[in-house]
Structures are given as structure tokens and as C-alpha cells.
């Protein structure tokens, strides 16, 4: 057994899992509140990465220092993705609150397709190299070779976001309103919670974390395209289901398990079937433990 190879796969899985986690958080929050798979979530992640690329590309010509570009591009991208998330909810999901689930799902797919092609038409169909934004710093010698600077940055960011979101949901007024809305929308409205606003907040927060994931992974892998969001979105959803949909620690745990599983399967079994493993895991988890690793079993109501 080659330990170095093992640990390299381990950390690459952890990186992948952290990115899935940033996406899965949005899925799980939106699902918790309006019980809808937001297929367009992956596109928000892609738009976040693209906006960062555009801003960074335009700014790099002005000869700004790299750190300033990184901060500016990230801030603009995060703000814009949150705006996209907000707008998508208002256009597509709000009119369908009372409609059957099937309609809402179809709208979500339509929205995802629309956003993908919007980027394709307005920008390009080619892979674009992503500017190297993440600062390269060296880690202590004992870590060297197995985990690099950007990977470390990705773990830390994910951990911070997860802790912040947990605190937000557990201890703030907004978090309390979110939990109330996800339990019972009508009752929450009766108690004076502005349900529409809470749903908008959820979308904004979800889009924010998704875009963060988009920027991090794009600067890590170094290239982006208009369709990077779709598969990542689907896999993040799988991760959210794996962890137990509606649960924030579950989403992170599920993402890391999925990222590891993919990384090890690709490293030890076969890399061409990398994308298949996620779906196999999904089918297995849905058959044997539909509530996920940390989720509560759902009682079906008549």
C-alpha cells in the first residue's frame, strides 16, 4: 500500500468534498424551506465562477496587485450570484408556490437550461483558463507533497462557512424564522414572519455559498466552462441527500463522504467511470436509508 498516493487521494477527495459541501448547503437550505430541488443552483455556482473570471480578467489589465484583484473579483462575483439567486426565485419559483411539485421541478430544469445557454451565448463555449487567484503559500514540511496551499484554503473556507451557517441558523432571529418557515409556512406567516422574505434570504445565502465554491474550485482546477455547474449541482444534491436533506452538518458530512468515495474510486478502480459512482451511491442510499446519514426519517402524511 502506497501511503503517499493514499493521502493524495484523501486530500483531493477532501477538496472535492468541500466544494460539494459549499453547493450542498444551498440545496439543503432551499429544500428545507420550499421542498424543491433547485436545479438552477449549479448554474449559480457556474455564474459565480464566470463573474469572477470576467472581473479578474478585466482588472488584471489595469495592473492591480493580485490580492486586490482576488478580493474585488470575489466580492463582485458573490454579490452578483446572490442577485441571480434572488432573481431566479422571484421569476420562476415564486409564482409556483402553490402549484404541484412536478411543475416546480420542471421550472427548475427550465431555469437551469436557460441560464446555461445564456452564459454560452453571451460568453463562449470554449474552456477558459481561470486566472490564478489563490495565493500560493507553503505549508509545513510534514504536510508537503500531499496537500497544497489552495487545497488548504478550500478546507478552511468550507469549515468557516459551515460554522457560520450553523450559528446563523441556530442563534439569530433570521435563523429562527427560517426554521419556523421550513416547519410550517402558514403558521410562520400567522406568527408575523415574512415568509417571502425568508425564502429570498435562503436563496441569497445559498447562492452566496455556491458562488464561493465556484470561485474556489475554478481557481483550483484552473479552467471553467458554461456546463461545469450542472454535474457539480447534481452531485452536490446527491451529497445533500446522502447526509440527510435539510440538515446542515449532514450536507457537509455527505459531501465529504461523496468526495472521498469519488476520489478513491477514481484512484483505485477506474477514473473513466468517476461520474457514475455518485449516482450509484445515490441509488443505494435511497434504497437502504432514504433519510440520509443525519436526517430525520420523514413521515408520509396523507
Amino acid at each position: 500500500m502506497n501511503f503517499e498516493y493514499f493521502f493524495r487521494l484523501f486530500f483531493s477527495g477532501l477538496t472535492r468534498g468541500s466544494i460539494y459541501a459549499l453547493l450542498a448547503l444551498g440545496y439543503t437550505m432551499v429544500y428545507g424551506i420550499i421542498k424543491l430541488i433547485n436545479f438552477a443552483h449549479g448554474e449559480i455556482y457556474m455564474i459565480g465562477a464566470f463573474t469572477a473570471l470576467i472581473v479578474a480578467g478585466a482588472l488584471s489589465l489595469t495592473g492591480m496587485p493580485a490580492l486586490a484583484i482576488l478580493v474585488l473579483a470575489s466580492v463582485v462575483a458573490l454579490v452578483y450570484s446572490s442577485m441571480y439567486g434572488y432573481t431566479v426565485e422571484k421569476i420562476a419559483y415564486k409564482p409556483l408556490r402553490q402549484a404541484p411539485r412536478l411543475s416546480a421541478l420542471i421550472v427548475a430544469i427550465g431555469m437551469s437550461m436557460f441560464l446555461q445557454n445564456y452564459l454560452l451565448l453571451a460568453q463562449t463555449s470554449n474552456f477558459l483558463p481561470f486566472p490564478d487567484l489563490l495565493p500560493e503559500f507553503s505549508l509545513p514540511e510534514s504536510w508537503g507533497g500531499m496537500v497544497n496551499g489552495p487545497q488548504f484554503l478550500i478546507f478552511v473556507t468550507t469549515a468557516i462557512i459551515m460554522v457560520a451557517l450553523t450559528l446563523l441558523i441556530k442563534f439569530t432571529r433570521m435563523g429562527k424564522s427560517m426554521r419556523a418557515t421550513s416547519q410550517d409556512k402558514v403558521m410562520a406567516a400567522l406568527l408575523g414572519i415574512n415568509v417571502n422574505r425568508i425564502i429570498s434570504y435562503t436563496f441569497i445565502i445559498g447562492s452566496f455559498t455556491a458562488a464561493l465554491g465556484g470561485i474556489l474550485i475554478s481557481s483550483y482546477t484552473g479552467q471553467i466552462n458554461y456546463f461545469i455547474g450542472f454535474l457539480a449541482g447534481i452531485k452536490a444534491f446527491v451529497a445533500a441527500v446522502l447526509g440527510g436533506i435539510g440538515s446542515i452538518p449532514g450536507a457537509v458530512l455527505g459531501s465529504i463522504v461523496l468526495g472521498m468515495a469519488e476520489s478513491f474510486a477514481a484512484g483505485y478502480i477506474s477514473s473513466v467511470y468517476e461520474d457514475v459512482f455518485a449516482f450509484v451511491i445515490l441509488v443505494l442510499i435511497l434504497i437502504f436509508k432514504p433519510s440520509g446519514l443525519l436526517g430525520k426519517p420523514e413521515v408520509q402524511k396523507v
Partner: peptide, 19 residues
């Protein structure tokens, strides 16, 4: 070129206005 864009829009518009 706009074919897929339109298909996406069709899905959204139909579901919102004429399910």
C-alpha cells in the same frame, strides 16, 4: 443558436402561465 435557450424559457413560461 438560441434553440436551447428558448426551450428553457418554454419550460418556465408554460409552467408559470399555462401549466
Amino acid at each position: 443558436d438560441y434553440r436551447m435557450l428558448m426551450f428553457g424559457a418554454v419550460l418556465v413560461v408554460m409552467m408559470v402561465f399555462r401549466p
